[in-house]
Design a protein around this nucleic acid. Structure first.
Lengths: 225, 225, 225, 225
DNA sequence: GATGAATGAGGTTTCATTCAT
DNA sequence: TATGAATGAAACCTCATTCAT
């Protein structure tokens, strides 16, 4: 997920007359709103987010938000739909790359962790959506079936590892998927409280590398036969 | 300055109405407020929580909240301080129980998971506190040093396991602590979105037992030499 | 932490009602608010003033006050800045009118008194601002230097009177300025308590004329060599 | 007026058992409340004053205020009645002291100014009472006739001065009384705004002496035949 | 006499949303 | 398309006052 950078391309097109308002480029405006909303919702949560803050960040009039997205809730839905799509896309190109089951698994672990690190909005949006009991994504057919392929990939990789004799038998793919995500998600989502009770800064590049290695060790160590 | 003259009626009519009291058990009232606030903050987050909802749950006048706790933020601090104390107490009596390092580690894993299961508020409060960048617990000396002993326990258990030849060498206690928490926390905190994308109900007793076993397997499997 | 589970209904129902607009003349609305606020603050003081009373007088929605002025305090600042500007403007056109020092001084005395009489808000606002230890005007560069020119005028008039032999020597311009204001201000600001202890109505046109004459006599009598 | 010191005498009696509460001396408690209320009302005005602040200053329970004084308004009335009595008492012993009319007049001028300087509460209370259109003192028979004697004294002194040839003829006693008060009152009540627009500190002992001299010069200079 | 719990009313402010241009 | 004025609802909080002990 690379929001905040998404609008750069279309923002290029905005260099024209300039009538008296900044941008007269509907698509760019809409993208700017979506990017701004992503940051706002991710960092403050749905309830903490202010549509006033979104329009400030997007440097546009508040009514454009309502014009393009209807209301706060629909704006939020647009935000998480795009976020989920980005997350899933992030995984897709990795799935078919490795023939070796151990490399494939290691790739998934690292890619999952790095996705959370590189897309700080992802966690914030997931937090919000869970606080609201997944009310929004529940109705999104797109999202509901988004992870079927990924689960298949995990299952298949596990099977190939077992067949090759490098993975233990009987590991549940769903639980494994959850664990792979959990190890990175919790580390990042709770970095502030963890920082306080563990007296560390968890966001230095060095510490992140240590965590990446640790997570890989945990999962791969567990998978050993 | 446009002229206007002094206004017609003077104010100073401050005679208010007479109330009629009901309860009259201060400790119980305060406890009721704290319990109600815990539920409200945990389920809605700090921003989503409404002081009005707290008093409704606590069946008391709204001003008692301000009488006893000052304001919404101080009430929230009181809530998380108690929550942290409860969580920590939950671990304390477990720490000294097992001589065997493997049993001790298994005990910690299970106890951590069950704590999250049995105290649904814990996760909600942690979520909120992290969304606000831990700004409340940062100033709580009590909380800041709360986990030092637990970390020592983990370190010592790891050492004993290594000495006994049942644990691998060189495992970082902090990362292990994070992983043990992550495995249960994420499963529960994200159960709603996970439920949607994985088509499962993660809160049945059976599924919870499965997860408990899985987490134990992951950590203990990883720790194998 | 007492257990309680997540609460029943989720929030996020933020659909508000639809309003029906009336006016639509922003400048007039803003002016109406400022005028109403001037009266309210002047007659009740800053603390006694109610934003609700302002909007009632201005016949507008309460939020427009916040839309245009930010908050109660900023509204108050806007009110006193305008009031000071009006007071000062009241004096300005008088300063250059008289070549004769005695006429000039008499003009200042009368004009000061009449300004207080004609702008009943002025006194109320000054009272309020002094009760709050001038904390609002302190930061107003405009107001801070507003009276420098008037003081120069007084100084110069005194000098010319001394040179002409009609004023006594050594009169402090600042103290004279204070006295000229004091004589009218106190008479008007304290008219209610004075009315009670002196058994008079101080606001009849006749009584006001008597006071005007008296003040002129006091100052000019004092200035005699 | 010497509030704030009034309770010292009766506070002496408080040195006894100390059951568990600070003072068990009703008179001292009542006096403490009255002194505290005087300061609070004087510095904040009626509307700005908080009965909570009064009880904090008086170090007593809030209900004692209601027990002794009924409510906020009655407390305020008690405060200004005592203040007026003190002001009047301040003048009384000066009235009969001087046989010489000029000395008597000078004495009144100085004594009035010093009364305002030494009793900072006096001005604050007068300000409040005038903002509320003298609502409270209007019904106080004591206060209504309090100044009759003082006015007589001024009239008589003026007459004696005219007879002696040192005062001008035809000066109105009421207006003179107002002016004598105005010169000191305004200087002190408006010292904050004056400080800002005139760039001076008006409360240094030196500046106060300068003002005292100036006021005396103004009135006595005016009274010259 | 003294205390602290409890209450109701209302005040300021925020915020999502819609109307009018 | 874009803008800013206008609106209603509700949130947090304060404060004077009274009840119960």
């Amino acid at each position: 997920m690379t929001h905040g950078g998404l609008s750069k391309a279309s923002a290029m097109k905005t260099l024209r007359a300039a009538p008296k308002t900044i941008a007269r480029d509907p698509l760019a405006t809409k993208a700017r709103i979506l990017n701004a909303a992503t940051k706002e919702f991710a960092s403050r949560g749905y309830d903490g987010a202010r549509v006033g803050a979104v329009v400030k960040r997007a440097r546009c009039n508040i009514n454009l938000v309502y014009h393009y997205f209807g209301n706060k809730e629909k704006l939020f839905i647009a935000v998480i739909e795009r976020a989920y799509a980005d997350i899933r896309a992030h995984h897709k190109d990795m799935e078919l790359r490795n023939a070796d089951p151990e490399d494939a698994m290691r790739g998934l672990i690292v890619s999952t962790f790095r996705m959370f690190v590189d897309s700080p909005e992802a966690i914030g949006l997931l937090v919000s959506e869970n606080m609201h009991r997944a009310r929004h994504i529940k109705n999104s057919l797109l999202i509901v079936s988004m992870y079927d392929a990924l689960l298949d990939f995990i299952r298949e990789t596990l099977d190939r590892g077992v067949a090759k004799g490098v993975f233990r038998r009987g590991v549940d793919a769903t639980d494994l998927f959850i664990s792979i995500n959990a190890e990175g998600y919790f580390y990042l989502s709770n970095r502030h409280t963890l920082g306080v009770i563990l007296h560390q800064d968890f966001m230095t590049e060095e510490r992140l590398r240590q965590r990446e290695t640790f997570i890989t060790d945990v999962i791969m160590g567990f998978l050993r036969p």
